[in-house]
Simulated scan of single mutants.
Amino acid sequence: MQKSVLVIGSLNLDLVIHAERIPLPGETVRGLGYEELLGGKGANQAVAAARLGASVRMGGRVGSDAYGHSLLDGLTAAGVNAAGVQVSEGPSGLAVITHAASGQNSIVVQPGANGAVTAADIVEMEFSGVGLVLLQLEIPMEAVCAAAKTARQAGVPVMLDPAPVQAFSNDLLQAVTWLTPNETEAAALTGGVFPPQETAEKLLAMGCRNVVLKLGECGAFLMGSDCEPVLVPSFAVKAVDTTAAGDCFNGAFAARLLAGDAPAEAARYANGAAAISVTRMGAQASMPSQDEVAELLENHR
């Protein structure tokens, strides 16, 4: 029986305002349009993995508002088992996103129900049959640490996306099989900007088993106990919205690791999935299908 991906993390409703550019501090710019889209780093990664063939379960919380219902419906429509998502009285998580014509974005997140996830919630989750646990930092650190500890005790590998970046203990990192920061997050964790291999070495010294540096258009750099140092190139595309590209990478990387791919092979696949995602608007709405990624990889053989 195929093992599943268990994603424990955030579910947000993304309120997206389109503008010619992201405003400077204190500046007001005129919006060019507005959308409400399904998001949240946890839910994004769950949807990405499910669309790419993985069996996926989601754990977390939504609010009792209409947004909560929409978020649950979105997971179910994507093929994610949302039985582990509880409903808290009050508002769901919200993300306010300014999307510039260049494809760049700025994001402010209001946790809502995501802030109510506790270590007790983790204890109630079922880890049997799970092949990989995906975590991010949009739920309380208490819950993240409890999830990593429980996964380690169950012998299940953990993938941690350290976003939004914040301080955490080495005890957490010692339970992490794959740490997947982008360049900004890696710089915050290591205290500076270094070449990819030096950055990876510094992160590995903190206790995690493997590192995947997500380098945007430069690709992904892998290093650790389970892979030799390697830079996996990205795919050249015209980006229209970079929202959730990193989430797409994580979901795709997890799906392919569980399918038996070697880490570098899984990273190439994940680069392809992320490349497709940035050519579309939205978070979950931008996640590609298996056929789309297969076609891109075949065309870039």
Rank of each mutant, 00 (worst) to 15 (best):
M1I: 06
M1T: 12
K3V: 03
S4P: 00
L6Y: 10
G9V: 11
G9E: 14
L11S: 14
L15S: 03
I17M: 11
R21A: 07
R21N: 01
P23T: 14
P23Y: 13
L32R: 15
E35K: 12
E35F: 03
E36M: 15
L37P: 01
G40P: 03
V47T: 14
A50D: 12
R51W: 10
L52P: 01
G53S: 07
G60E: 14
R61W: 13
R61Q: 14
V62T: 14
G63M: 09
A66L: 11
H69A: 06
L72Q: 10
D73N: 14
T76S: 08
V80E: 12
V80N: 05
A82E: 15
A83V: 00
V85A: 00
G90D: 09
P91K: 07
S92T: 11
A95Y: 09
A95H: 07
I97P: 01
S106Y: 01
S106N: 05
I107V: 14
P111Q: 13
G112F: 06
G112S: 04
N114I: 05
V117P: 03
V117W: 06
T118R: 15
T118E: 13
A119R: 13
A119W: 05
V123M: 00
F127V: 09
S128N: 12
G131D: 10
G131H: 05
V133I: 11
L134W: 03
L135E: 08
L135K: 08
Q136F: 07
Q136K: 08
L137V: 05
E138Q: 11
I139F: 03
I139M: 04
A143M: 07
V144S: 00
V144M: 03
C145D: 12
A147V: 04
K149C: 00
A151K: 06
A154C: 06
D161I: 06
L173D: 06
Q174E: 15
E183M: 00
A186G: 02
A188Y: 08
A188I: 02
G191A: 02
G191F: 02
G192V: 11
G192L: 07
F194Q: 08
F194S: 01
P196A: 09
E201N: 12
G207Q: 12
R209H: 12
R209N: 01
N210K: 04
K214P: 00
G216Y: 07
E217I: 07
C218Y: 11
G219A: 05
P229F: 04
V237G: 06
D241S: 03
F249G: 03
F253N: 05
F253E: 10
A262Y: 03
A264T: 12
A273E: 08
I276T: 11
I276A: 01
V278L: 04
S289H: 10
S289F: 04
S289P: 01
A294S: 11
A294L: 00
N299R: 15
H300T: 13
